[in-house]
């Protein structure tokens, strides 16, 4: 039993399937994901596959500023990803809003207040190798059972972040 659990844990690191979520990005970060699938960076050598549906994904890449409209969409899609899951925030926008902070329709706050984020990849946009490194890091966290969603589940504490950002809920 222990062996099977170990194999599954290794598989989580060796086969991270990613799903891309644009929360209102300028498309810069999304364009930098495309080279990951190109011959130069070839994410498949790490077992990374890009999937369109969150149901197949292990790691959600969230790029872009959080807007009033995308907040609920992020929550919905995050809930659809089967456990165990990890979230990688791409670029500056998810952590602060970047240059869009303070706009009337932008939640000028960190993505952490909406969903638990495991890895932040800085850059505007981040280079493909930084994204690859971020995904590899998140995959390692998945193997160790150290992503925030896994830790929250193991603690059995309802530590879902309260979505206090932007509007009173």
């Amino acid at each position: 039993m222990n062996l099977i659990e170990r194999v599954i844990a290794i598989s989580r690191r060796r086969s991270p399937w990613i799903c891309r979520l644009n929360a209102g990005s300028c498309n810069g970060c999304d364009i930098e994901i495309t080279p990951l699938l190109s011959p130069r960076y070839d994410a498949e050598q790490l077992g990374i596959e890009l999937h369109g549906t969150p149901k197949h994904a292990d790691i959600v890449l969230i790029s872009g500023t959080l807007t009033l409209r995308s907040r609920q969409a992020i929550l919905d899609i995050y809930d659809q990803v089967p456990n165990p899951k990890a979230v990688v925030a791409l670029g500056s926008c998810p952590s602060s809003g970047n240059v869009f902070a303070g706009s009337p329709l932008v939640l000028s706050c960190s993505l952490d207040t909406v969903v638990p984020v495991d890895v932040w990849v800085p850059g505007c946009p981040p280079r493909p190798q930084a994204i690859l490194d971020g995904i590899a890091r998140a995959a390692k966290l998945l193997e160790d059972g150290a992503t925030k969603s896994q830790l929250a589940k193991s603690r059995l504490a309802g530590s879902q972040p309260e979505s206090r950002c932007g509007r009173p809920s």
Partner: peptide, 28 residues
């Protein structure tokens, strides 16, 4: 997490105290 790496700070710093190094900031 709020920087857009435009380099204006480096360009405008009168004493060249700010420098944007040519390496990729790592994920955290």
């Amino acid at each position: 997490g709020q920087c857009s790496f435009c380099g204006l700070c480096e360009q405008n710093c009168p004493t060249r105290a700010i420098h944007l190094r040519a390496d990729v900031p790592g994920s955290t």
